[in-house]
Amino acid sequence: MSEAAVIELRGVRAGYEGRTVIDHVDLTVRRGELVALVGANGAGKSTLLKVIVGLLKPYEGSVSVLGSAPGASARRLAYLPQAETVNWDYPLRVEDVVMMGRVAHAAPGRGPSSTDRDAARDALGRVEAADLARRPIQALSGGQRQRVLLARTLASDPELLLLDEPATGVDPTTEEHLMGILAELAANGRTILVSTHDLAGVMAHFPRVLAMNGGIVADGDASILRDDAILRRTYGGHRTTSPQLVADEHHA
């Protein structure tokens, strides 16, 4: 091993209220990897991300993230939750939300510093949303919301990014742009896990794919999505169509 793993899971079983959602999960992710999590709703993509972030304590198994227990290095990672878990009707402006990415780094009682403001402005610029800074968040479209949340995760300059369906509600052009940002971050040594339903996008951009269905069904390069047997085990038989068809269905 030339480099320590950023994420290391061994024999992990996890779920909610006693119910197991993922089981027998072994996973090693190294620095600079760009990994997609695919699978049907309920397959355990969000559950796996929450275990890595430290929001969910596994029933069994060991988890190491950035060299320590999950949650212990919260300031070095950023997590993008599914957009519907956020209160979009709050009276906040876009820049206020992006600035939240800096709150964990700030001491209580301190307002945003000039470094914080610069980081927030820079992050908004990277998702091409600089013109939205003063916009009330109530007025944002679904795609704009996703870009704002992504800017918030970028604002903390994290080593590890965990993104739960960042492409939901985003138009294809924006999605292409987001993928470009993620690829560049990975090239600069950031480690990134993304859950998504867009199999065509995964095949175009992700060097590594985890196919999930109650655990990790397959782990390999994007070509595993052309394997009918793997697709059957991932989508449970009712989705044995080609990725292109699945992707179209998602965009419809």
């Binding site: 972030v53 949650g71 300031r75 990672l77 997590y79 878990t85 956020v86 906040l92 709150v103 918030r152």
Partner: peptide
Amino acid sequence: FDAIGAAAAG
């Protein structure tokens, strides 16, 4: 605003 995001941020 975002309890899950805040918890994830530590």
